[in-house]
Simulated scan of single mutants.
Amino acid sequence: MLVPLEAQEVRAQVRTVAEKEVAPRAAIYRDSKIGEIYEGTYEIQKRVIARQIFGRDMTG
Rank of each mutant, 00 (worst) to 15 (best):
L2E: 08
L2I: 06
L2P: 00
L2Q: 10
L2F: 02
V3R: 14
V3G: 00
P4Y: 02
P4W: 05
P4T: 07
L5G: 01
L5S: 13
L5P: 07
E6D: 11
E6A: 11
A7F: 09
A7M: 04
A7H: 06
Q8G: 10
E9T: 06
E9W: 01
V10T: 13
V10Y: 05
V10K: 09
V10P: 00
R11G: 11
A12Y: 07
A12M: 09
A12R: 15
A12C: 07
Q13W: 09
Q13C: 06
Q13A: 13
Q13G: 00
V14I: 15
V14M: 12
R15A: 15
R15N: 10
T16Y: 07
T16A: 15
T16N: 07
V17M: 06
V17E: 12
A18S: 08
E19N: 12
E19Q: 14
E21Y: 06
E21T: 06
V22M: 12
V22D: 04
V22I: 14
A23W: 03
A23F: 09
P24N: 04
P24A: 08
R25W: 08
R25H: 13
A26V: 13
A26W: 02
D31C: 03
S32D: 12
S32V: 05
K33R: 14
K33W: 05
K33S: 03
K33I: 14
I34P: 03
I34A: 14
G35D: 09
G35W: 02
G35E: 10
E36Q: 13
E36H: 11
E36A: 10
E36M: 07
E36P: 01
I37M: 03
I37A: 13
Y38R: 15
Y38W: 04
Y38P: 01
Y38K: 14
E39Y: 07
E39T: 12
E39A: 15
G40I: 02
G40A: 03
T41C: 00
T41D: 03
T41W: 01
Y42S: 11
Y42E: 10
E43L: 12
E43T: 10
E43R: 15
E43M: 08
I44F: 07
I44D: 12
Q45K: 11
Q45E: 14
Q45L: 07
Q45H: 08
K46D: 11
R47P: 01
R47I: 05
R47M: 14
V48F: 05
V48L: 15
V48A: 13
I49Y: 07
I49D: 13
I49S: 04
A50E: 14
A50V: 00
R51Y: 01
R51W: 00
R51S: 01
Q52T: 04
I53N: 02
I53K: 15
I53E: 03
I53F: 06
F54K: 05
G55H: 04
G55D: 00
R56D: 11
R56S: 11
R56G: 01
D57N: 08
D57S: 10
M58N: 10
T59P: 02
T59Q: 06
T59N: 05
T59R: 02
T59G: 01
T59F: 00
G60H: 08
G60E: 12
G60K: 12
G60P: 01
